[in-house]
Design a protein around this nucleic acid. Structure first.
Lengths: 190, 190
DNA sequence: CATCTTTATTAAACCAGTTTAATGGCAGGT
DNA sequence: ACCTGCCATTAAACTGGTTTAATAAAGATG
């Protein structure tokens, strides 16, 4: 759990004793390609850390896949909406490749945060981080063309396009496979 | 500061002493219509609570206004991106009507959060809240048509359209004034 | 009250995406 | 090696927006 430990410490200092206490609640989950942590209708009781692999956070509406996010190595994730509001999930959290995940139950998180001020601070700062990433995404969705977004994705997350089929990338960008194909064609010409 | 106090307590219990301690750092700011709390290039050192009024969070790109959010009564706000990352603002925070705001400096926030575990928890939960709202926005931007978004805005924030000129609403929805006008025309016909 | 400015609507031409459908390539299973 | 199914590309017709420009309506100012 070395990566997870370093991830936490990258947000704020935490006493070793508190970290040890926290870690007893984590369990390791091995996911095979195609397996899901969460499916629509289920309660979301866990908060996850993705050590290695790739997890697709998506929903299906009117028969169509809508990708919300691709999580890759070294990030915290869950269906945060359902987790926070204690609602049944509307989405999938599905491994697009074999993945290693560490999971902790919500009630244990709450317990540990109450016990340790430092871990509570970590919780605040990591949430701040999640906010920032989501907010910048709103900005892009509103202000950039599909082409700009695609180019930016290539720059910011090179490799993602190798790991994930193109029609999922298209969905993530908010367009159809046909639309993305056209954009790619335009780009190679110029 | 009764509203502010209740807002904080709606997130989590806080000892009266801690609240009193916190409030000594707050200052009241009266904004006249058109005045700005933040302008591009400035450092964002304060976190705000909007008691009454309306604040437009926007940027200007290539001569065009891009509205990110309208803040109305009883919300926390700031240019959170610049605030968190200590970068100069890229945006305006401008009153679209006379507004009453309470402000606290970032260093005081950090200080108070370190001193009080309960206030730190409040900080975490309010950030969680901000995340949820931003995240649902991403979902809508990606999955809904402009018309659906406009109708939803009318439902969710009736009154906003009375308070804010229509071309700003259009910008907030990600379209042009002409585009919004067409959508409105379509809607009255049906 | 008259003028100047700003905001909303409309029309026409245009464009970047969608939808539908056909084609070809590649991957996995037997 | 041969199907079979899935994925990416292409083409053609379509659609819901944009851009530009003109006009009308509403506010602000002297």
């Amino acid at each position: 759990m070395e990566n997870l430990k370093n991830k936490i410490l990258s947000y704020t200092a935490v006493d070793p004793a508190d970290l040890t206490y926290l870690f007893q609640f984590y369990r390791k989950v091995q996911l095979k390609k195609g397996e899901s942590l969460i499916r629509p209708g289920e309660q979301v009781n866990s908060f996850y850390y993705l050590d290695t692999g790739c997890v697709n956070y998506y929903k299906v509406e009117e028969g169509e896949i809508k990708v919300l996010e691709f999580y890759t190595e070294d990030v915290f994730f869950t269906d945060l909406y359902a987790y926070v509001l204690d609602k049944p999930a509307a989405s999938f959290l599905e491994a697009t490749e074999n993945s290693t995940v560490y999971a902790i139950d919500k009630m244990d998180v709450e317990h540990v945060f109450r016990k340790s001020h430092q871990l509570e601070r970590f919780g605040r700062l990591s949430m701040q981080d999640a906010f920032i990433r989501t907010f910048t995404r709103v900005e892009r969705l509103n202000n950039r063309t599909y082409e700009e977004r695609y180019v930016r994705l290539l720059e910011k997350r090179p490799g993602l396009i190798q790991r994930v089929p193109q029609y999922l990338i298209a969905s993530y960008l908010g367009l159809t496979p046909v639309g993305l194909s056209k954009i790619r064609k335009r780009l190679v010409k110029s």
